[in-house]
Design a protein around this nucleic acid. Structure first.
Lengths: 229, 229
DNA sequence: CCCACTTTGAGAAATCGTGCACAAGCGCGG
DNA sequence: CCGCGCTTGTGCACGATTTCTCAAAGTGGG
């Protein structure tokens, strides 16, 4: 078998965008899309779309475009969305609760199959279809249900400890919502979603828009500058 | 006055990490930190820390390190955290609700001052200290309370429309939680937080860890590869 | 006061990502 | 069967980011 194609990280991060754009396109009975159109839907430029897709293989047809369903299938396969991934959420506070009920995991492919919390008071509590289980049972839960992906939705102080336990239990991909840096051993993937950080980044650019605001705000019409990616 | 220092986007995205690390350090009565130590806390490498901080100015002391409180102040100022930013959340569903109650906006600097929803059934409903208001009142709300930052927590289908209304109302920074691409005019900053995308990225790397799993899972021990940033 | 040691700040090289430009390939009409 | 128009795939130049490296600058001990 051929060696595994190396796909740049930046490209991987955009594949989900294309995936979503294609899903919408597919719903509309359109047979093919051009890189131009796909770029518009995904909010990037056409050259980037073509380059990104070329890493997956030559799936387009010159003069025509990409077959929507075929490309959709290829990207699905590449992203590992052809089968379901069971997911465990640790931390059933405000955020964990919202995540558990969140229908918008958009494309399927992910299914929350366990909710875990350290607080004995929460164990047994029902959330939707699930019942909150004990943190100490993680190894059994992860093992029995063949869970590979864990979501950390605890307070910052508990995040590292929880991540460690997830890894010990056999989890190899972690999505961290706690506002803190978490370290994981090699071989374990980690991504983070951090509200405070995002707001602070916005704040940085926002601040630069108002040239001389000293305390009150809205000194002048926003200068048309600074675009955040 | 000197021209505005240009700070690379990648650096801006890391400033919040340093900020948080410094906050923790400051709590511990430590007077100075080295780039080495700061790097450890922020989960990056020391050279990067020094380069990043050097964009802000020469705030360190050779042979000693950085004065924690002084650096903290400089970064605060740079990020615009020296004053409060009022924030409006649009969409009071599961997610909006959780965000409204979320205490973990970590460092202060941001205060949710308005909740808005399009559903007449939700208007008037209380969430914490706030009362849900009508989407149509956005211009007044944003104007009166001098809000510059808006959070979109609606379903994907409504996101673009809501973003447009936010912009019309005078918002110039948007944080989008809806799983869809949103376009904004120049001069408006936009960042997104996308659960589905993050999970799909994890899935991509996760998939590559299990060499020959065809349907069942756990074919072998995870190969120690693929690190996601 | 000088020396050894530590740590920053920044030049320079290496790597990564982006966008342009265009040749190559494909479908369609004549 | 040929030529035209359209769109992909990709080489290449450029810009951004990361990493390496080391001189400069400060501290503390003798």
């Amino acid at each position: 078998m051929a060696e595994v194609r190396r796909i740049p990280e930046a490209t991987v991060a955009r594949l989900p965008l294309y995936y979503r754009a294609l899903l919408e396109t597919s719903d509309q009975q359109v047979g093919t899309v051009s890189s131009e159109r796909l770029a518009e839907l995904a909010g990037v430029n056409a050259a980037k779309v073509r380059k990104d897709l070329s890493y997956l293989g030559s799936y387009g047809t010159r003069g025509v475009g990409y077959d929507v369903d075929f490309l959709l299938h290829q990207i699905s396969r590449e992203l590992g969305l052809t089968h379901d991934w069971p997911v465990v959420i640790v931390g059933v506070g405000n955020l964990g609760h919202a995540l558990a009920n969140y229908r918008g995991f958009g494309a399927r492919g992910f299914r929350i199959v366990a909710l875990v919390d350290a607080d004995p008071g929460k164990i047994g509590q029902r959330v939707g279809e699930l019942e909150v289980e004990a943190l100490d049972d993680l190894p059994r839960i992860v093992g029995d249900r063949e869970i590979a992906i864990g979501i950390v939705a605890t307070p910052a102080a508990a995040a590292q400890e929880v991540a460690d336990r997830l890894v010990d239990a056999g989890i190899t991909s972690i999505l961290n919502f706690a506002p803190t840096v978490v370290a994981v051993p090699p071989g374990v993937s980690l991504r983070k979603v951090d509200l405070a950080t995002e707001l602070q980044i916005l704040s940085f650019y926002q601040q630069r828009k108002v040239p001389a605001a000293d305390g009150n705000g809205r000194a002048a019409a926003a200068s048309p500058r600074a675009r955040v990616r």
